[in-house]
């Protein structure tokens, strides 16, 4: 891995409209080479569109971006020879077998037939897919699909690997496997830019995180820096009776001295707190006031809480991801 430029990806003021929607509304990114960079945001925040622009699949309406010093608009072909993309949806041919997919890509990237075949076999073995090599990808499980997707992205080891929501919809075991693969890739010198909806995932993998909302970067830093801005932890409370939630909200706000977030679940509330003693007293207070608590926990802040801290409102549930998906279809 060459280490000439310090930044693997640099974007300044990227803009992309779809009709009247500003899917990407002035995004700045600076991704240091050789690191994992997390782009965190809810559905529809513009993550996918940003990744599509950076991998030359879409033209920005404004702003500039470079990959390892090469401009994505002036030198798209050079950029394509440096990056590799694993899209949010299956980015291999589902009708073909695992081997056929990897041989296809190997041939397209310039390997001879036998080199491509060898590379495919090596990758399938390394990703634990040797047994499924001759099965059509449409018969793979979700976790296997994700692994073949990623394998397809490193037939030639890219300088920068873009992973668009690599673990969305995966069970915890498959998710851990994908995480392990990403860690190994980075230890081999590849820069990884991944998008995710899960703070947990960004926290586990990313050296730096950009939080995106409505097409803008609303916070950027290491996960430690972001958490410091959000509060050390969060208390989650579930009540027995949803009718009591307004009472509980009033009590908790008073006892904890911070804003209380009403979750989508009609019996759930949460708040960011520093002090666990305070939480213990607040829960006792609820019980004393006759509000029955089904369960409570003290844990890491959720994405909702990060958003509440950064924007003063919960992360919105958009019905679809970036409209780019729609126009690309």
């Amino acid at each position: 891995m060459k280490s000439t430029p310090d930044l693997a990806v640099e974007a300044t003021g990227l803009i992309k409209h779809f009709g009247s929607t500003r899917a990407v509304d002035g995004i700045d990114l600076a991704v240091p080479a050789g690191t994992v960079y997390g782009v965190l945001g809810p559905n529809g925040a513009g993550k996918t569109t940003a990744v599509r622009i950076l991998t030359t699949l879409q033209q920005p309406d404004g702003g500039t971006a470079t990959v390892l010093g090469h401009d994505i608009q002036r030198e798209p072909d050079t950029v394509r020879s440096l990056v590799s993309l694993t899209g949010q949806f299956a980015s291999v041919d589902e009708d073909l077998t695992g081997t056929e997919n990897l041989v296809l890509l190997g041939r397209l990237l310039g390997y001879s037939r036998s080199q491509a075949r060898r590379r495919a076999d090596d990758l399938l073995t390394a990703f634990g897919l040797a047994d499924a090599a001759d099965r059509q990808v449409k018969k793979y499980s979700g976790g296997m699909r994700r692994r073949i997707d990623i394998a397809a992205s490193i037939v030639v080891t890219p300088e920068v690997l873009f992973l668009d929501e690599p673990t969305t919809g995966l069970d915890p075991r498959s998710r851990n496997q994908v995480w392990d693969i990403i860690r190994v890739l980075v230890s081999g010198g590849t820069t990884v830019l991944l998008t995710t909806q899960y703070l947990d995932e960004a926290d586990q993998l990313a050296d730096r995180i950009a939080v995106i909302d409505h097409g803008k970067v609303i916070a950027e830093g290491t996960s430690g820096e972001l958490k410091a801005s959000v509060g050390a932890g969060a208390v989650h409370v579930r009540l027995r009776d949803p009718v009591k939630r307004p009472d509980a909200e009033r009590h908790l706000t008073k006892a904890l001295g911070v804003p209380v977030l009403l979750e989508h679940d009609p019996v759930a509330l949460s708040a960011r707190v520093e002090d666990s003693d305070l939480v213990a007293r607040a829960i006792s207070g609820l019980i004393a006031a006759g509000i029955e608590v089904a369960e409570f926990s003290l844990g890491q802040p959720s994405l909702d809480e990060v958003f509440l801290a950064l924007t003063g409102r919960p992360a919105e549930e958009a019905t679809e991801d970036a409209p780019g998906e729609e126009t690309a279809a």
């Binding site: 990237l109 390997y111 990703f127 037939v155 190994v184 230890s187």
Partner: peptide, 14 residues
């Protein structure tokens, strides 16, 4: 994977 990664050098463009 580490072994496989180091093997993924870029061949000449087809």
């Amino acid at each position: 994977l580490i072994a496989t990664l180091t093997a993924g050098s870029r061949p000449p463009r087809p």
